[in-house]
Amino acid sequence: MNHALTIYWRLLGVQLRSQLQYRLAFFFDVVAMSSTIFLEFASLALVFQRFETLGGWTLGEVAFLYGLEELSFGIMDMVFSGFDPSYFGQEIRRGSFDQLLLRPLNLTMQVFGSKFVLRRLGKIGMGLAVFLYAQTLITVTWTPAKLLYLPFVVFGMVCFFGGLFIAGATITFWTVESIEVMNIFTYGGGYLIAHPMHIYQTWLRRLFTYVVPAIFLNYYPALYFLNKPDPFNFPAIAPFVAPLVGILALLASLAFWHFGIRFYQSTGN
């Protein structure tokens, strides 16, 4: 385990160095990455003066939700780059995954170390900026408990979406091409929980409550941070299950991943 971790850091080092080789290109990539978030959020922020609220939430409150989600998704997108289904599908096609099987190292760790998209820092930075911008618009009554819980919320989202990436990557053992529907859950799910959940059609909200429990990742914690009442009358514990939901999703995906590897070893490519 210790050895695997040491190698992971070395593999990360390889990734970072090769990405920083072309400083200017890297810089532009980071800027482009953060602009995506910036422009998308700006389009919402700019129309707020005409509308004042989004389903009763002020711009500051939406920014809180939005920033927290983008920050977490960005971290996930960077750490789990190796499992990005479209990238991983390519690795299967090229046979690069076989090369990983030939090394005497834990496979999962190797996939983590096979790609680390540093330019996602742009996304993470902009997510953080939007989150901080929210603090200038609204006064959040921060308590030590809230501050302590905040990193766990980020952790929950990173695990949850990381789990979706792993599940998507595992599916490519069967399909080779990454399947488009996964994007609905990953990118679509991210966009979905970046906005207050009570604005969605009932069926959509239920889908993302009971089938894919994404509502507990960001919305419920935000209700707690912002001292807002729960419109759906869930038990009072609801805001605090985010890390649990994330970990469970990740564990389930890892189980599926190991099942997928066994399938791959019985059929090959």
Binding site: L44, V47, F51, T53, L54, G55, G56, H195, P196, I199, Y200, Q201, L204
Partner: peptide, 8 residues
Amino acid sequence: AILLALYG
């Protein structure tokens, strides 16, 4: 959904 929520 977002636009409808903005409209209120």
